[in-house]
Amino acid sequence: MIEVTRRYVMKFPPDSADKALTYKLIKDYDIKFSILKAEVRPGRTGSLLLELEALPENIQKGIEYLEANAVICEPLGKKIKFEASKCINCGNCTGVCFTGALTMDRERWKLNFEPELCVVCELCVPACPMNLFDINFHEEEPEKIAVGN
């Protein structure tokens, strides 16, 4: 078995701050991970983009463990919506994509999109003149209405 690298967007529930969830990933499942992006809002959900590197079965067990602790785990590719059928291959998005997830095929001049290289910087979203990218890193919750006024 060889180790693989997978990127997941994980949404942590508000009460998870006091649990050593990611520590368990390292200790019990031997997963190396890098935090590529984090948005933690105290008292509300936190979102992490994690790159996991481990044996595939360990990644699966780690994800199952997190899910058992109310963490929502989704492969990165599922969080990025791209309407490829409407793409005109203009290349605007490749200009801002510094990780190389969006590149031009320099033979056919078509867009190559490799979601696995994405770090969810979201620069492509406004850069696309056709508005074809929709990235949902953290689902915005409706602002809580203050009690009393």
């Binding site: 005109i88 290349g91 490749t94 200009g95 031009m104 320099r106 001049w109």
Partner: peptide
Amino acid sequence: LQSGEISINGNKVRTAPVASLQKAR
């Protein structure tokens, strides 16, 4: 420009088209 990188005053700079050569072809 079409190679993907140009040199500007000694700096290597990544290039991107903003018009579609695929559609033009």
